[in-house]
Design a protein around this nucleic acid. Structure first.
Length: 475
DNA sequence: AGCATGTTGAA
DNA sequence: TCAACATGC
């Protein structure tokens, strides 16, 4: 009577519906599995499975899984690891363990949903598969406007989510009965080469070799550290509404994004903590709004295929980007000669994270002043951010690029110098992150005024394309 | 979740 | 001369 729980982006014990169900329904051993997944593309060019993790996120998962394994062991649950195609691995693991139940937390990206549905279908004859909520505040298919469609606009969506009841958080489950009950089967799977040690599933491959040390200086992955951070909310949430745009202030934001990315915290836990904090109403509102943005992005991603690399506004296919390796390299290396952007790119490279205000400015420079395709910048962030999120990252890039569905009626181009004087008035952020003595161009690699005019001219082609689309020629 | 430009009115 | 404000993109 074995129970299998397949962990994915839910690396925690508390408020974990799938884990709770696995433990409470178990009459026998419970085994937890985490797979370093590869993604498959079928003959119709459909992707199956989640987007392959970027290097910084892989580092985080490696550390977080290291922290999680002994905590699961305390519950009597071994955590086992595999690498490769999830469908094949699940087939092998289920064939050997022959679990009565398989539990997992739902994923919401269309490609991941396709894979999970296929696996569920395939396993149906051999075991009972249960998928659970846990990674979102609300299931995307339950959030409907009065007209029955899914929400396209953030504000009404956020109001609808805010009005939902927040049911009590789940505690960490109690230990299970037979901690060693599956040992023989697990040994077989190891001998067959299906299971590996955490160190051997490639999470630390392909990252810069010094990254391991530098990232560890700035972050402590794992559910316990995440909960400490959230428990300290009365220390950092007061003043958030006013200070959240100041990247030079160390505690101006919560830095909780990587915790939500890998599920060390559930969004429900974050929301509950905010609502019960002693902070002022405007601070609670400003921060929960950020949680709702995450939620909104996931709902959009669920309902729309190809958001990851295709513009939401089709007319943006006409935007005349001019790929230029020299500019891309300067941007990635934090050598554009523009202080706020270079500071941000160095913060990113050194810590795997960038303040959101600076992300917007860096992305604006990249897509507009530099005329580089947003997909290329998005891919760099995907590789280097420890919080790289399948929904948030591409949708935010699309928002900055102007290709998002609910973009402003004008073509927004940030002025990075103005943004620096406004949000980093004493240059404390810039000085903190740009290495001393770094060779940087004295004259910025793009002229801000000139490139602004060129970007506006480029946008005219999008306007022309959308006008042509709105008034199609009659034949 | 913006910028540039122009106008106004007080110093 | 330079803020604060208003407007169009």
């Amino acid at each position: 009577m074995t129970t299998l729980i397949w962990l994915r982006d839910d690396l925690r014990l508390a408020d974990h519906p799938a884990l709770t169900a696995a433990c409470t329904g178990a009459h026998g051993p419970v085994v937890a599995l985490w797979i370093h997944e590869t993604r498959r593309t079928d003959e119709d060019n459909n992707r199956h499975g989640p987007r392959p993790l970027g290097a910084a996120t892989r580092w985080w998962y490696h550390r977080s899984l290291q922290q999680l394994a002994p905590r699961l062991a305390d519950l009597g649950i071994p955590l086992i690891f595999a690498r490769g195609d999830a469908a094949r691995i699940m087939r092998r693991v289920v064939d050997t363990l022959q679990p009565t139940f398989v539990h997992w937390t739902r994923r919401y990206a269309p490609a991941a949903c396709r894979l999970d549905a296929a696996i569920k279908q395939e396993l149906k004859s051999r075991t009972e598969v249960h998928s659970h909520p846990g990674s979102l505040l609300a299931e995307p298919w339950l959030m409907r406007t009065a007209s029955g469609s899914h929400y396209q606009v953030f504000t009404p969506f956020s109001h609808a989510v805010a009005d939902l009841p927040l049911t009590p958080l789940l505690p960490e489950p109690s230990p299970v009965d037979e901690p060693d009950g599956a040992a023989t089967d697990l040994a077989t799977l190891r001998e067959d080469g299906v299971l590996h040690n955490l160190e051997d599933i490639g999470l630390l491959d392909d990252g810069p070799d010094w990254w391991e040390d530098t990232l560890a200086q700035h972050w402590e992955p794992g559910e316990l550290a995440a909960r400490q951070q959230l428990d300290a909310i009365d220390g950092w949430l007061p003043g958030y509404a006013k200070r959240r745009d100041l990247p030079g202030e160390e505690t101006s934001t919560s830095r909780i994004s990587p915790r939500l990315r890998c599920g060390e915290l559930s969004p429900r836990q974050a929301l509950a903590a905010a609502r019960s904090s002693t902070a002022a109403g405007e601070d609670i509102a400003a921060w929960t709004r950020q949680l709702y943005w995450r939620e909104f992005c996931w709902h959009l991603l669920h309902h729309r295929e190809h958001l990851e690399d295709t513009p939401m506004r089709p007319a943006f296919e006409e935007f005349p980007y001019h790929p230029d390796d020299h500019l891309v390299r300067a941007w990635r290396q934090g050598r554009t000669g523009i202080d706020l952007v270079d500071g941000g790119m160095w913060q990113l490279w050194q810590t795997g994270w960038m303040h959101n205000r600076v992300r917007m400015v860096a992305a604006s420079l990249f897509t507009k002043n530099m005329l580089q395709p947003w997909q290329d910048g998005e891919q760099w962030f995907w590789e280097t951010l420890v919080d790289a999120d399948e929904a948030n990252n591409p949708i935010s890039w699309q928002w900055v690029a102007g290709s998002g569905a609910d973009a402003a009626p004008y073509f927004r181009i940030f002025n990075p110098e103005l943004q620096r004087t406004r949000f980093d008035p004493h240059s404390s952020y810039v000085k903190r992150w740009i290495p001393e003595g770094l060779a940087r161009p004295v004259v910025p690699v793009v002229d801000l005024a000139e490139s602004r005019r060129e970007a506006l001219a480029a946008y005219e082609q999008v306007r022309a394309a959308s006008a042509a689309h709105a008034r199609p020629q009659r034949g």
